[in-house]
Design a protein around this nucleic acid. Structure first.
Lengths: 231, 231
DNA sequence: CCGTTGCAAGAGCACTGCTCTTTTTTGTGT
DNA sequence: ACACAAAAAAGAGCAGTGCTCTTGCAACGG
């Protein structure tokens, strides 16, 4: 308990470096071949260590995947945040579509990472609590846009069926207390629908259907914004 | 080349029975543990045969999965068609939401089958042409609803940006020549967004966000219908 | 300077998909 | 009825997987 900080620091530094190298190589393999093909043994092989040594750093393949999931959520969140910043104080609808485009662009650039977080979850694998904050980042960006819109004049009246009011109120309270229930509900719906558009494009459902994906997405995102009361 | 039809018939019957049994057991395992855990050896074991014998019926695991994919598309398509029929000549918006609910219900009842067709595709696996007709069934139901709506008075004017007009015209020509480009574009967008809603619920993105999934979905589906010009 | 602790390595288990070879069954044409 | 070719099943085997357990080694700390 005395001066062991440097000692621990030495060990810990090495440990962190190896951990980072493992994650890096794993991400490389993920990007190349997808999550199902990610193999601990292959990662170890590439790093010149034996497979069992890897278990000192990640207790299981799932834990390694979890680390990659968090990174992916963070990367997507960062991309969304950057798009929001770049949009500055443009009209809310423009901010919204800008963030949508950023999400799509990130997904197209990192298809396997996208599939890891928004594709079918691995059965028997429940995303641990640790992923929640990273996963929330993108949603937070959208919430911010609607928060701003609510203050300005750019937000249309939104219908909210009586039967959904309690849920929408709970939702608003949980998500962002300064949003009206109407806005909160519309926001969540738009959020899910946005990822429907991206997933369909990425997972091949638009093959032989949509040619001009770029323009179609812009059109659909605009519709999304409109449906959620923006613009 | 003479009367070998009966001979082939006898062999073929046995063959079909075994093929069906394999698919049945595979579907059982798929429903139980998901696609990644589906194992040829386990299927063979359960059927009391040795694993290599299975390759006489399905040349690879992927081919078996393809068969299950087609079945899943067909089952979902059938569910959608049934919902459409049950809705009869209700207003288009009601028909639309009814089909949406049917899609969601089927997905909730068959999560792994849903994940197989609308989740992340297995990398390196390209859905062969054979899946296309089955995959189109659900889309056809939606197209039918909009076709009907276009004849009645229940279809609102839809905006279509100039830049998307060529694509929308091509889309309408490919998909359903009797739909206007405006309707075709809106339809495809709604289609993708519908599956975004279902996937988010099924893949756990609504955990800790939406409680009352039932009502929220109804609300969102209504919004989808409205956004596509219905009601 | 010696002991604890952290790490690496090796061997091994129970699996997987898939291939190749050998044996058995089976439906039939003569 | 029987011999024969085609189809099916079985077996062995290869290369790979996640994961565990034991053993050796090296570095750090009192």
């Amino acid at each position: 308990m005395t001066g062991m900080t440097t000692a621990q620091g030495a060990r810990a530094r090495a440990r962190n470096e190896v951990t980072a190298a493992i994650k890096e190589e794993a991400r490389r393999q993920l990007a190349a071949d997808g999550a199902v093909k990610l193999s601990l043994r292959a990662v170890a092989r590439e790093l010149g260590m034996v497979s069992s040594a890897l278990y000192r750093y990640f207790p299981s393949r799932d834990e390694l995947l979890t680390a990659l999931i968090i990174d992916a959520y963070d990367a997507l969140g960062a991309a969304a945040e950057k798009a929001r910043e770049d949009a500055g104080d443009a009209p809310p609808a423009a901010c919204f579509t800008a963030v949508c485009e950023a999400v799509r662009a990130w997904a197209l650039a990192h298809p396997h990472e996208y599939a890891l977080i928004y594709g079918s979850p691995v059965p028997g694998y429940a995303a641990p609590e640790t992923t929640i904050p990273a996963a929330a980042r993108t949603g937070m960006v959208l919430i911010g846009i609607f928060r701003d819109a609510q203050q300005g004049p750019g937000l249309a009246e939104l219908p909210l069926p009586d039967e959904l009011r309690p849920e929408a109120e709970r939702l608003a309270a949980d998500l962002a207390p300064d949003l009206t229930p109407e806005v909160a509900a519309a926001l969540v719906a738009a959020w899910a629908q946005l990822f429907g558009l991206v997933s369909f494009e990425l997972f091949g459902q638009f093959n032989n259907v949509i040619e001009d994906r770029e323009r179609f997405f812009r059109y659909a995102a605009t519709g999304l914004a409109h449906g959620a009361g923006l613009g």
